[in-house]
Amino acid sequence: MLQWGRKNLSWLLGAVSVLVLVLTRAAPYPLEARHEGELRPLLLRGSVASSVSKAHLPLLIDLYWLRTLIGMAEPETEQRNKNLYAYGDFLTDLDPRFFHAYYFTALVTPYSLGGDKFVNGDLALKMVRKALARFPDDQRLHMQHAFLLTYIEHDSRAAVEVFLKMAKLPNAPAAAIASATAIFIEQNDFDAAIALVSEAMGEGGHGSTTLLADRKKQLEIERQLRRLDEAIKAAAVKLGHTPESLDEVIQAGEWSADETHDQEGGELSVEAGRGRSSWLVGRMEGIRKW
């Protein structure tokens, strides 16, 4: 019996081990449960990674950069965008001069919930502000900052401040300044919009001063048309119906008979209850109506 036991001890131990392995088997613990919805990518701290892998840091940075780009191609979810922010933050900690890492991750971080509701906007703003601390004169970042403030933070005033700062930069793009005036239009502040364009034209070096000059004319005519809109509304109250022509507004005493043309010679008229100019192709709308 003892001899049999000695002879087969290894078999016995092996069988017991297999039995224990089978009994203690377990499925992998779900990753989602482990992090309670906080699925952050596993990343080292920037300072640790840069010290430990200093000999091969550029290669490591680029491998993470490619991983980030591949992540950008994955289906968009709130969590994916949050992860991309984490990658961008990590990359820019490792290499604070990596402009594209700031720029692209700030672009893809906000997640639209429909309409003008966004999540992760705070993260995108954080990334843009981190980038601006490093590249204070970059126009693309200023544009991005202003649009995040407008769309996500709904803080048009702060966005205007950004555009005003941007207009003072050397070689500020004319198209960007022209677009920025949309925020002023939103607030019905045409004086500020015209002042911004005039300032930008005065700075010079904007590539296309013709574009800015055209924008200024458009703003001045739009200001006139907004006045006409108010006059049409006032005339509608007096007449009991919406006036269908400029003559009706003049006859109601709400518009001067001398002001039938705008400053560029375009003929003023009334169309669907709103003022029109033959010089201005369409009415200028606020940024949310684009």
Partner: peptide, 10 residues
């Protein structure tokens, strides 16, 4: 640049 030099450097 990073990949080329990185591979040689590795």
């Amino acid at each position: 640049t990073d990949f080329g030099l990185g591979v040689i450097g590795l």
